[in-house]
Structures are given as structure tokens and as C-alpha cells.
Design a protein around this nucleic acid. Structure first.
Lengths: 214, 214
DNA sequence: CGACGCCTTGATAAATGTCAAACGTCGTGG
DNA sequence: CCACGACGTTTGACATTTATCAAGGCGTCG
């Protein structure tokens, strides 16, 4: 339902920051780098990643048009960020933005709201991570359905590996659950990255967030 | 190393909010209730919980003296909060606090910093949730070691069930890992809730966050 | 002393990860 | 236009981890 393209964010609406282009898989900032800028997706898709010394990778979040990322407390990024596909990103100096909030109270409130939005998204992510494999994949699909579907069709920008690292499973488990869901008529797989959502009620039942207590 | 008691937080330092007492296991606010107040632990311990309709429970975070909780974006609490042990909590109206930020720029910045602190804590929690059972329990102990140990001794306020729900495991698995760690000389269990940290290097190796890429 | 709550331990089942191979698709070059 | 190769995805057999079910121990408080 949500429009996939051109959803201006807090920065774009105010014409803040400068748009920059990145190729697919290009690094936007690396983990451990100083936190000097704030970023907003104009078009494309971005993943935030953390790589452990043994090679395990976590994808903390995926960001689409209008989403803010790079907001952190410390002086160093604990997660890096990479473009998933060719993307345009608005970049603004953190200090500049903070200075602007002195005059612009609405901007200050938007900033706090964004931080809390981030907290909320992370709550959902955390919740997903304690659920079963089926529920995790279902949650992922439901979230993508809300964020980037056109009608009932989701065009996934990311690989199975990206999904696996986001939901905390292996690529094989994710793949198996996709085929299970397709067999059960919950989704239809036009191709590996083209997904048609079919039975929304069934899928939402499968997210483990039943009724009242969601 | 960290002092367990009397670590005044943002509200206490400014004498904001009114202190209120809660018994152990008393509800401070329920999930689904409107977000009208902000809370700060003066003494004791608080857990934020989410209960799913099928009875599964997640403990999103545990809060000790000086910690803020109850900060959310939406109008309803997506997680509830309960005192773990008898606790004193400062309570302040959210609106009041927001109004105060108009005059007090430092307060506004503290508020944003707290939100980002929360984001950081959640990042660590998320990361923990994709690791193995051993690593999760090790991470938990290391975090408690940093936050509430006196010397090398941790006095846990919460039950095994609370720990299990926080790290996304069953109570049995948590218990087994505790005894394994005690057998391996990483910790010593004076009693079920009295833990002496022994081999810090070994434990930190066991958190899965090796070297550079932490 | 007894009962209750919490914690531990054991046996077994279920879920997920690992390793290996086959399959498809897409772009390149013959 | 077709063949080939690279890469991502799917599938299968098997190993490992963790959950489940059940029982027993331990400490505390009446």
C-alpha cells in the first residue's frame, strides 16, 4: 500500500543536507568511524551492518526513502551502513543540525521524535528475535509489506543473506521458510525477490503477535 | 566496579518529578496504557516487559538507579514496567518535561542523549539475541558486572525466569549455562543469585564480541 | 516440621544449523 | 543467437543446539 518512491523525509522537506549517490554495496560509513553526519535516504535502500570478528554479521535495520539513519550516541559508529542498491542519500553534518535546532524548535522535536521512532522500530526487531523462525520471516514480510509494497507486491532489494542476517537465521532456513510459505499459499514467489502477498490474515497470525497483547 | 546504589539521574539532579515507592513485582505501568509520564529509578530495579497472547514474555530491559525508562514515541506503552524488588521511582509528567525543555536547553540535550543511550543499549541487546545461548548468558553477566557489581560480586535482583525472558532462552537453558560457567571457573555461585566473577578475560571471550570489531 | 517457590538436573523431542550438491538466472563473450 | 560461467537460491541429509517434559533438591517462611 505504501508508495515505494519519493517519500520526502525530515531533511528533504527542509532542503537540508546535500544529496550524494552511492552504488549498490557501496559503504556509506564503516563501523568504528566517527559519528559526524546524519543521513536520510532519498531513494534506494540502505542496510546497517555489524560484523563480528568471527565473520557473523548482523543487519540492524534496513532503510528506505524518507528514513533517517546514522543517529548514534557515542563518538563512533557501532554499526556501519551500506547501500543495498544504487541509492541517493542526503548527508548533513551532525553539528550543523544540532546548531539549527537552537533556532528551530520544530526541528528539535522532529529529531527527538526520530530517535524515539528508532527505539520503537528496534523494539519490534528485538521482539522478532525471540520468536520462532517462521514467525521471524513472517514478521519480516509483514514489515516489508507495510513499508515497500506496491499493492500486494513486494520487490525485495536485498539478498537472502541480508534477510537472514536481519532476522538472525541462516540463509538456508530463510529459503526453506519462503518455499513453505509459498506452498501454503501465504505468499507467491514470482521470482526469488518478487513476492506477492496473498493471505494477509494467515501471515499476521504467523507473526506471533496475536490479538490484544501486541 | 560501578557503585550499586545512589547514582542520581537526570531528574534527581534537577529535583524533578516526585519519588514514589513500589513493592516487588508491582506494576508501574501496563502495556497498552497511555504514555503520560517519564520515570527514573532512584533505588531498586525495574524490568520492562511485553507479554504475547500465547504467554511468551520478553523483558526488553532492566533498569537500575539513575536509569530512565518509559520513554516511547507512540501514545501507548508497547511494553509494561514492573518493579523487580521494592523500588523508589521518580515520576514526572511527560508534557511538563517537554515544556521545561523550552527554557532549559541543557535538559533538551540530556533528553535526546538519553533517547540515543537507549538506542545504544538496544543495539547491544539485539546483538546478543543473535548469538548462541552461552554467549547470551555471558553477555548478560558482563553487562550486570558493569552495571551493578560491587567489586567482583553481582547480587542479582531478578529470577532465572527474568533472565531467561531477557536473553530469549528458557529457564532451564539459563540454569544449565550458569552451572557450566561455575564448573569452568568463569564464575562462582555463592547462591543462586550471588555471583562472583572470576575469569573476566574468559568471559569476555565468551561474549562473541572479539577484538577489533566489537 | 511442612509446604511452597525457585532452581537444578535428566531424558527426550523439536527446531535450526551445517555441509554438500543441484538448480536457475543473468550477463558476457564466442 | 547460443554457450558458458558466476552468483544467488533451493534442496537434501545429517549434526548440533535448544526446548520440552518430568522429577528432584534446596532454602525460606509459616
Amino acid at each position: 500500500m505504501a508508495p515505494a518512491a519519493s517519500r520526502p523525509g525530515v531533511l528533504a522537506r527542509r532542503m537540508l543536507g546535500v544529496p550524494k549517490n552511492f552504488q549498490g554495496n557501496a559503504e556509506i560509513f564503516g563501523q568504528g568511524e566517527p559519528v559526524d553526519y546524519l543521513y536520510e535516504v532519498v531513494s534506494g535502500a540502505v542496510r546497517s551492518t555489524k560484523v563480528l570478528s568471527d565473520g557473523r554479521r548482523q543487519i540492524g535495520g534496513v532503510y528506505f526513502a524518507g528514513d533517517i539513519f546514522g543517529l548514534e550516541h557515542g563518538n563512533e559508529h557501532s554499526l556501519g551502513a551500506e547501500a543495498v542498491v544504487p541509492s541517493t542519500i542526503r548527508v548533513i553534518k551532525r553539528r550543523t543540525l544540532v546548531q539549527l535546532t537552537a533556532d528551530d524548535r520544530a526541528l528539535a522535536e522532529d529529531l527527538l521524535a526520530m530517535a524515539m521512532c528508532q527505539v520503537e522500530r528496534m523494539h519490534r526487531h528485538e521482539l522478532m528475535l525471540i520468536m520462532t523462525a517462521q514467525e521471524r520471516v513472517n514478521s519480516f514480510l509483514t514489515e516489508m509489506g507495510q513499508r515497500i509494497s506496491i499493492g500486494d507486491v513486494i520487490s525485495l532489494p536485498m539478498s537472502r543473506q541480508d534477510i537472514a542476517d536481519h532476522v538472525g537465521l541462516t540463509i538456508e532456513t530463510v529459503s526453506r521458510i519462503f518455499t513453505d510459505l509459498a506452498g501454503g499459499l501465504t505468499i507467491r514467489l514470482t521470482s526469488a525477490r518478487m513476492i506477492v502477498l496473498r493471505d494477509r490474515p494467515a501471515r499476521e497470525r504467523g507473526t506471533g503477535r496475536g490479538g490484544l497483547l501486541d
